[in-house]
Simulated assay, not measured.
Amino acid sequence: MPQISDAITYPTEHDDWVKTFLIGGVLSAFGFLLLPLLPVYGYVVRVVRHSLEGDPRPPTFGDWEELVVDGAKAVLVGVVYMLIPGIVGGVAVGGSLVAVATGTRGGTATGLAGLVVGGLLTVALSLVLGYVAVAAVVAFADERRIGAAFDPDVLKPVVLSGAYATAWVFSVAVLVGASVLVGVLNGIPILGAVIGAFAFFYAQVVAARLWAGGYVDARTEADGTTRPDVGGPVA
C-alpha cells in the first residue's frame, strides 16, 4: 500500500497533471448533470488499473469511450451492492411513516423506534457493503470483467485482509475530509462549489491509489505471487 504522503502527491506525478486536474475538476463541477460523472468514474477505474500495473504516474484523460463505459460499469457495480441498504432504508422509512400515520400513541412510538432501528441497520449495511463494493470495483479494474466484481473467490481474500482494510479506512478519511471541505466551500456562492468539485476530484484520485495498493497487498498475501509494487508501507 502506498505511503499516505505518496498517495496524496500521486495526482501530480505526471507532466500533464494540471490538464488532467482541470478536465476532472470541470467534469465534476457539472456532475449535477450526472452524465459528466461517468468519465470521472471511468478515470478513477483507470487510476486503479494503472496503479495495479505498477505505473507510478497517474493516467491522463483520453479514449473517452472507454472512460464512459468503465465509469458506467463501476456505477452498476456500486448500485448492485447498495441495493440491499436502499431497500432496507426504504422499508424502514415507509413502515415507520405508516405506523406514525395511525395517529395513536403506540403507533407513533413504534414508528419512531422502527425509524431509529431501521436507520442504524441501513447505515451498518451501507458501511459493510460499501467496503465490499470498493474491492469489487478494484477487482473489475484488475481483471477487466464485470463478473470479477461479484466473484467470491476474488473478493474474499481482499475484504478479509488487514492491508485492504487499512487502505479503505485511510481512503474514507481522505474522502470525508474532502467532503467537509466541500461543505465549507459551498458557503461561497458559485466559486465555492467549483473549487469544491476540483478538491473532491483530487481526493477521489488519492483514494483510488490507496484502494489499488491495499488490493495488491491483499492479493499478494493470499496467493503468494508477486504483483507490481504500489508505493511503500503506510506512514
Rank of each mutant, 00 (worst) to 15 (best):
P2G: 00
E65T: 15
H14E: 11
A7H: 07
K73I: 13
P152Q: 10
V176S: 02
L120Q: 08
V80P: 01
G231S: 04
G114M: 13
V184D: 02
R227E: 12
D55K: 08
W211P: 01
G130K: 05
D142M: 08
V88S: 04
T225G: 06
A197G: 02
V79I: 13
V75L: 14
R105Q: 14
G147E: 15
V230Q: 12
L155D: 02
V182H: 05
A173K: 04
Y215K: 13
L175P: 03
V137E: 03
G24Y: 05
V137M: 13
V174W: 05
F140M: 15
G213I: 10
V206T: 07
V172G: 00
D223L: 06
P36F: 03
G231E: 08
T220F: 02
H50E: 14
A173M: 14
D151N: 14
H50K: 14
S161C: 06
I195E: 03
V172S: 00
A124F: 12
S161T: 03
A235I: 15
S161D: 09
G107S: 10
L185R: 08
A235L: 15
H14W: 06
T20A: 09
V138T: 13
G89W: 01
P56R: 04
A148K: 05
T9G: 07
A133Y: 07
T12A: 12
G187E: 02
V116P: 01
G31F: 04
G103K: 12
A218V: 07
R227T: 04
A203T: 05
Q3P: 00
Y215Q: 10
L191P: 00
V88H: 01
Y43F: 15
G94W: 02
V132Q: 02
S5H: 07
D153Y: 09
V172W: 11
T104A: 05
T60H: 11
W168D: 06
V44R: 11
H50F: 13
A149D: 07
I190D: 01
A173L: 15
F61L: 11
V176E: 08
V180C: 00
L33F: 09
V88I: 14
T220W: 04
D229E: 15
L33G: 01
A149K: 05
V180I: 15
A101M: 14
G177V: 11
A124Y: 11
G232K: 15
G111Y: 03
P189W: 02
R46P: 02
L97S: 09
R49K: 15
V40G: 01
P58V: 14
Y10G: 00
A74L: 12
G118A: 12
T122I: 06
R227I: 06
V40T: 03
V205S: 01
Y43T: 08
V159A: 01
G71D: 06
V184G: 00
A101Y: 12
E13D: 14
E13K: 15
L115M: 14
G177H: 09
A165K: 09
V158F: 04
V116M: 14
R209P: 00
E143C: 00
E53S: 10
P233M: 13
V154Q: 03
V69H: 12
V47L: 08
I84N: 03
Y10S: 07
V88R: 02
E53K: 14
A203H: 05
